[in-house]
Every structure is written in C-alpha cells, then in structure tokens.
C-alpha cells in the first residue's frame, strides 16, 4: 500500500492504495464515484474516460499511484455549479445522444477534450476522435449531432432538426 493525494472534482482526497489499484477502482470503490464505468479489460471501450491534469485518460489503464498529485475530473464534476447540465451534457439530452447511459460518462469526457482541442470539429473529426469510445446503443448518429450542437454548430438529420 502507498498513500496518494489528488484533487478529484476540485476536492483534495488522500487515501492508501494498493500497488495494482487502478484509478478507476480508486474512484469507484474508495471514493464511491460510480459514474465512471468499466466496459472492457483491453483499454478500448472508453467507458472509464476521465481527465487527468486536463488530459483525456482511460482510468482503467493508469494506476491510482500514478495519479498521485494530479488533478482528476470525472463525470460527477461536469455539471454547472448550480447543478444544471453543462453545455455538452445538455446537448446529449437535447439530441438523444444516449440510450442505456453506460458509455455516456466516457463520451461526455471525450467530447469535452475534443472541444477543448478543436472547438468546431467536423463530423469526420468527431468520428475520428471517438475511436476509443464504443457505444452499442445509438449508432453514434446522435452522439455526433450532440457534439456538433455543443460546439455551436448547426446539426442536421433527425426529428429535432426537422422541426
């Protein structure tokens, strides 16, 4: 066991961790932040995506000890200070960018990273960026539209745009 201290969603936390404890295990089991999900064990599905020091990281492929001293943000820290959905979250709801919701936290975190790097991504850029986030429900159609909308771009196709 070793001691780690990190900032999670703005709050400083210190805990003892096992050497082989993954960041996602630390978040889910020690901090009970269960919004970050585990959907695979080969670092491909992206359901566990969080931000570590502002960068998109798969929390299942980094040890908690390696995040010692880091700033970590998770899906639980994404809403506006008043508790309302942030722009990306709201766009996902408005454009039906989620169904079962399991991949959604990772998608929202990936979308936030994308828009930070590329504020007005094209459809192809969004699809390329989401290579590491698998969704089985939506066919990605409405996820792409939600991210376009969150970036302030017009979206086409689907019931909402047709109205």
């Amino acid at each position: 066991m070793s001691d780690v201290t990190m900032t999670v969603n703005g709050k400083t936390v210190s805990r003892a961790v096992r050497g082989n404890e993954l960041l996602v295990e630390f978040l889910r089991e020690q901090l009970r932040l269960t919004g970050t999900h585990v959907g695979c064990d080969t670092s491909q599905c992206g359901a566990c995506c969080v931000h570590v020091n502002g960068e998109l990281v798969k929390a299942c492929t980094i040890f908690a000890a390696e995040a010692d001293g880091a700033e970590v943000s998770t899906i639980e820290g994404q809403a506006n200070p008043d508790g309302s959905l942030n722009v990306i979250q709201q766009a996902f709801q408005d454009h039906h960018g989620l169904q079962c919701g399991f991949c959604t936290p990772g998608m929202v975190m990936a979308a936030a990273s994308l828009l930070k790097e590329n504020p007005k991504p094209s459809e192809q850029e969004i699809r390329h960026y989401l290579q590491g986030n698998i969704c089985r429900c939506t066919g990605y159609h409405n996820i792409v539209r939600a991210i376009m909308a969150a970036s302030g771009q017009e979206v086409e196709g689907g019931a909402i745009a047709a109205e």
Partner: peptide, 9 residues
C-alpha cells in the same frame, strides 16, 4: 496510434 486517451499516456 490508438485513440486520443491512449495517445495521452
């Protein structure tokens, strides 16, 4: 290589 999250690590 990989995807954005993989490239960050």
């Amino acid at each position: 290589i990989g995807d954005p999250a993989v490239r960050n690590r």
